[in-house]
């Protein structure tokens, strides 16, 4: 098997890689130090230890664009179908096209850059792992291109790198389309649209309640944690830290539960019967249908090109 794979030896490649890695590490350390110095100047201590901020899901819902005007039911349905079609792509070139389409959609929906950047950064841990590990661990197949960075004895398989890149392109394309999907209508409207799409009432209520409670609990957690720090608690790698954090979590459960119970009883006494009354009516114009069909056709087209364009190996 391995005989049929193409092999290229790169003399001193290992040294070059090591030097590059060293440079990158030094650069990261310098950046950290600079950031810490800046934080100290601005008076933010130990920010990294407890940055629990949660982004707001619908902070751009009051803008105006094609996506904002689109009937939410059709928007959710057609973009979800499109996402699954993109997830099925197998060639880098079409995955790249999907990424371009997503970028265009973000632009069209007038979503600012910081929202998209946040989404992409969040995926970096999982996907970075693929980028590093795949080229080193994929089994060699006939026709693979192996690079040996001498004197490192492990081959660097280019096919593995390409698989990792394909995954990253698809993941980025789908992640970016989430912004035009979710950030172009207020969350209650999106949930209402989900109800019209036959998602059970209980699930919709739970999304709404949990989403609300996340911010309440974070507030609570922050308050508790500040109290702990004021009393001298510092996180270290030891049993005492785990003990404290275990109790912290338990306390978070207890206080949140008591609060939720109270709120729920208050809701019941005001006539809550499992649903919130909503007075938004949806109205699908022919334009909305056309836009939805266009998205699904776009996804289908990409998938067809992907599956039939056998002449493009990537």
């Amino acid at each position: 098997m391995i005989d049929t794979a193409e092999t290229i030896y790169i003399p001193f490649g290992g040294m070059i890689l090591a030097a590059g890695l060293l440079l990158a590490i030094v650069a990261i350390i310098i950046r950290r130090l600079l950031k810490a110095a800046r934080d100290r100047k601005a008076g933010h201590h130990h920010r990294h230890e407890h940055d629990w901020s949660v982004p707001v899901l619908d902070d751009c819902s009051d803008l105006d664009s094609v996506f904002h005007k689109w009937d939410p039911r059709l928007k959710i349905f057609s973009i979800l179908v499109y996402c699954f079609l993109v997830a099925a792509l197998t060639k880098i070139i079409w995955a790249f096209c999907a990424l371009i389409i997503s970028l265009a959609a973000v632009k069209l929906a007038k979503i600012p850059f910081r929202n998209t950047k946040r989404r992409l950064m969040a995926m970096f841990g999982f996907l970075g792992m693929f980028l590093v590990i795949m080229p080193l661990t994929v089994p060699t197949q006939p026709g693979d291109l192996l690079l040996f960075f001498q004197p490192i004895p492990v081959p660097f398989n280019v096919r593995g790198l390409l698989v990792a890149i394909r995954i990253i392109l698809k993941a980025f394309a789908i992640a970016l389309i989430m912004e035009p999907l979710l950030n172009t209508a207020p969350l209650p409207v999106t949930i209402q649209a989900l109800r019209h799409l036959r998602v059970p009432d209980m699930i919709c209520q739970m999304i709404l309640l949990s989403h609300r409670y996340i911010f309440v609990f974070l507030n609570e957690a922050n308050r508790m944690y500040t109290g702990m720090r004021v009393r001298g608690f510092r996180q270290k790698t030891n049993l005492a830290t785990l003990h404290t954090m275990g109790n912290f979590l338990g306390m978070l459960f207890v206080s949140s539960f008591n609060r939720t119970q109270r709120v729920y009883e208050a809701m019941l006494s005001r006539g809550y019967n499992g649903t919130f009354p909503v007075y938004t009516d949806f109205f699908a114009r022919p334009k909305d249908w056309l836009f939805g069909i266009a998205w699904i056709l776009l996804g289908t087209g990409l998938l067809l090109l992907d599956r039939t364009g056998a002449f493009i190996i990537w």
């Binding site: 209980m202 739970m206 409670y213 609990f217 974070l218 979590l249 459960f253 939720t260």
Partner: peptide, 14 residues
């Protein structure tokens, strides 16, 4: 329901 909502949010916060 309140218990499920609490644990869901706590699961998220954790």
């Amino acid at each position: 329901l309140p218990k499920v909502a609490v644990v869901t949010s706590a699961f998220f916060v954790a």
